[in-house]
Computed example of a mutant assay.
Amino acid sequence: MRIAVLIRSLSGLLLLQAAQFVFAQTETPNPSQAPSQAQSLQALFAKMSRVSHNLNYQGSFTYEHQNTSTLQGFRVSHWVDEGVEHERLLYLNGPEREIVRHGQALDCFSPGDQLLQGRLSSIGSRLIGLDELYQFQIRYTERVAGRMATVLQVVPRDEFRYGYVLSVDQETGLVLKSLMIDGTGRILERYQFLELDLNPDIKQLQQAPAAKLHRVANAELGGCNKTQGGEPEGWGLKWIPTGFAFVGQHRVRESTDMLMFTDGLSTFSVFIEPASQQPPEGIGQRGATVAFMSKVMRNDQIHRLTVVGEIPAVAAEQVAAGVEAK
């Protein structure tokens, strides 16, 4: 799930995504207007990336992706108590189920947040500016969930990432509507708030019983998972899309390595685990999330390799082809 990630910030528990829309070519800005446009974009990104972490809010939104005709409904509750974020995401369709998240300190930044704000000094010159990867254009204003929003168009400059159309609440910076779009103009995912309450009863949110089926995702209060930078341990990648940076490596379960990469807007992970037999190979896609399965050898041991993320299939396949043991 990556819903809460995009709701809290720009970086993709779901990155969700309206209507028929095809990107128009971004006009060449008048040089005399460029500074004000850049300043407006910078202010908008800062608000999107950080302000929503501090908000207390509750709202309902819809979500759908291209692989299904089902429109799903969710209720999200977000509040801050003594400098720590808390969040609940309740499914409104199907079996009653919920994701509960507690314990993220407000001074924690996700890798996407840090890249957007230029905070990953360890990556240094390896990080290409986002304006070299995407074209950004503030288009117009519209009304979403009864609130005025600024519409931001994000057009990728290559075939290795997706585009977005984001309707950003002018008061808070919260993304009220989002479309994720591929290179043909096809909408892969979309979500849209239907209603939003910025003054919820915090005690009521805290005391509300969890759904019968729920999963708790607790963060460590002792600090953030520091972004590592540098290079993965034990594995090398001959190719990743331009502008993506390695931001961490974790051991999942006992024997699975997870390598994480982001360009500040999109993310993907590489999972590598020993296999006792030939692993399946191929590709699958759900909405904007692709999973490319392959294999890699290390010390005569075959390993299952899976690239998962919000990147086009062509990018996932090239990433997988370049993974090697070190």
Rank of each mutant, 00 (worst) to 15 (best):
A325F: 07
G248C: 04
P31L: 06
F160I: 00
Q135K: 07
L198P: 14
D257S: 13
L221F: 04
E324L: 06
N218H: 08
D113L: 00
A245E: 15
E310A: 10
G59F: 03
S52M: 01
Q228R: 11
G236Q: 13
F261I: 03
V100W: 04
L213W: 03
E82A: 14
L194I: 09
R139N: 13
A313N: 08
K203I: 06
V5A: 12
Q42R: 13
A288D: 08
L14V: 11
T262R: 01
R298T: 06
Q285V: 11
S294N: 13
R126W: 00
R101V: 12
S269K: 05
F246D: 10
Y63I: 02
L213A: 13
R119K: 14
G129Y: 00
D263P: 08
L15S: 14
H214A: 09
Q206M: 11
K295H: 12
R88Q: 05
N299I: 00
G284L: 01
Q20H: 06
F23T: 03
V175N: 12
E281A: 13
P200V: 00
A18E: 10
S255P: 02
C108R: 08
M260L: 06
F268W: 09
Q104S: 13
L259P: 11
L130R: 15
Q58K: 14
G282L: 01
I202E: 12
N199M: 02
Q277I: 00
N54D: 13
A149G: 05
R253S: 14
K326I: 07
L188T: 10
N218V: 07
S125G: 08
A4R: 02
H102P: 04
I283Q: 12
L130I: 07
Q207N: 14
R143G: 05
Q37D: 05
K203C: 04
I99K: 05
R286W: 01
T184R: 06
A149F: 07
F160K: 03
E310Y: 03
L221T: 11
V290M: 09
G185I: 02
G284N: 06
K212M: 07
L127W: 05
L194T: 12
Q170A: 07
P280S: 05
Q277A: 12
L14S: 13
Q58M: 09
Y91N: 14
D300F: 01
L133R: 15
S294D: 15
V22D: 12
S167H: 10
K238A: 15
K226E: 14
V100K: 03
I202H: 10
I7R: 05
A288Y: 03
D263I: 01
S110M: 04
S49A: 14
N56S: 08
Q137P: 06
D169R: 06
R298S: 15
S294V: 03
T26E: 10
F271A: 04
C108V: 06
L90H: 15
D300Y: 01
I187H: 01
L116H: 05
G243Y: 01
A19Q: 09
A219L: 12
